[in-house]
Amino acid sequence: MSSAAPAPEHGWTGWLRRRVVAALPPEKLLPDSQPAYMSSWVYLFGVATVSSLAVVLVSGGLLALKGPAWWHVSAVGKYVNSLHLWSVELFMFVLVLHLWAKFFMAAWRGRRVLTWMTGAVAFLTSIGTAFSGYLVQQNFDSQWIADQAKDGMNAVGIGAFWNVLDFGQMLTWHIVLFPAVICLLSAWHVLLVRLRGIVPPIDAPAPDTHLIPPGQEERA
């Protein structure tokens, strides 16, 4: 039996910590500098998306405090519902602008394909989440959306399992399952951005390329 404390590098925990710190050292995870080529307003759509997602989650959480029927009968509830609606409109607004910007920057270059893919799947999941939110409004709009959407879902067999006419099922998906998936995908997406760094401009040579004699760029 040893009286010495176990070496920190031992065990599964030590292995995981080594891997995590090696992949994302603190200065990479929370940087205080950025590449000088990041000189455009379009870079702010990403942080705007994350921020509005936070507002969506908080306003949705406030609605959850009093349950789904509250906002129909309370002035405060109505305002909180309005916060939730407009934060979603803002979220989708900046999310799509972020998508446009990253597309025109071909931001998947340089081992960033997974960043693009997680972002695209998060976008599609957001559409599903918003849709399930419209289904649980408990008003005329949600009645009609459910009536119409059932045909789409049934036509491909999904409706047999995922019943848009079942308020309870849609509510649990909207407030638990979908948000959980969006949060996980968003976290993964943002960590990938930190891990791979911000994509350099299209056709940008490595910064010192012009000092290298012609024909030897490959090694640079």
Binding site: L30, P31, D32, Q34, Y37, G110, R196, V199, P200
Partner: peptide, 23 residues
């Protein structure tokens, strides 16, 4: 080959400040 972003010149940046302002 797309070069690593860390190879480029940088400038000061405050991630947390930016996130807070955006929020």
């Amino acid at each position: 080959a797309t070069p690593e972003s860390s190879a480029f010149p940088t400038r000061p940046y405050d991630l947390i400040k930016e996130v807070t302002i955006a929020m």
